[in-house]
Amino acid sequence: MNEFDAYLAKLEEIQRPRMTEVLQWVHKEFPELSTKIAWNQPMFTEHDTFIIGFSASKKHMSVSPEVAGITHFAPKIEAAGYDHTKNIMRIPWEVDVNYDLLREMIQFNQLEKADYTAFWRK
């Protein structure tokens, strides 16, 4: 997780604690995943394929499980009270993180991409 330190240091005070908490949670829950910064975003990969990524914006944390993940989980994302686009789920800084939903998204991508050799889905 050390490669996230420089990224986290650049965040605003309202963003840093939540982003740190979420990244540490993913690392603890899924120790088999590798960490990296790409496109200026913390990402978790497995066998060199993208599993999930995070980024900070002024009003929310963006979570990206790729379009397939958003499509698959859209009803659960909406039920959790989060907004989303086709590429990201938005978690406002002042709203609790639904870790069960994050776990499901990560497990979905691990299963779906178990035999992938490319970084992104095609």
Score class of each variant (00 low, 15 high):
residue 80 A to T: 08
residue 80 A to R: 04
residue 109 N to Y: 01
residue 85 T to E: 04
residue 60 H to Y: 03
residue 34 S to T: 13
residue 2 N to E: 14
residue 63 V to P: 05
residue 80 A to S: 15
residue 45 T to E: 03
residue 67 V to K: 12
residue 40 N to Q: 07
residue 2 N to H: 04
residue 111 L to F: 06
residue 111 L to T: 15
residue 29 E to I: 04
residue 79 A to G: 15
residue 102 L to P: 05
residue 116 Y to V: 06
residue 119 F to R: 08
residue 43 M to K: 11
residue 24 Q to F: 00
residue 70 I to L: 12
residue 52 I to L: 07
residue 54 F to T: 15
residue 21 E to L: 03
residue 109 N to H: 01
residue 103 R to W: 01
residue 3 E to L: 08
residue 100 D to A: 13
residue 55 S to F: 04
residue 114 A to T: 04
residue 87 N to M: 12
residue 44 F to E: 12
residue 23 L to N: 13
residue 114 A to P: 02
residue 105 M to F: 01
residue 51 I to E: 05
residue 104 E to L: 05
residue 80 A to G: 12
residue 8 L to G: 09
residue 71 T to P: 05
residue 97 V to Y: 02
residue 71 T to K: 13
residue 46 E to L: 07
residue 26 V to S: 07
residue 25 W to Y: 11
residue 33 L to Y: 02
residue 34 S to G: 15
residue 45 T to N: 05
residue 60 H to A: 10
residue 105 M to Q: 03
residue 74 A to T: 15
residue 1 M to V: 10
residue 42 P to V: 10
residue 70 I to Y: 06
residue 21 E to I: 04
residue 51 I to P: 05
residue 11 L to N: 02
residue 107 Q to R: 13
residue 58 K to Q: 10
residue 38 A to E: 09
residue 101 L to Y: 02
residue 12 E to D: 09
residue 23 L to I: 08
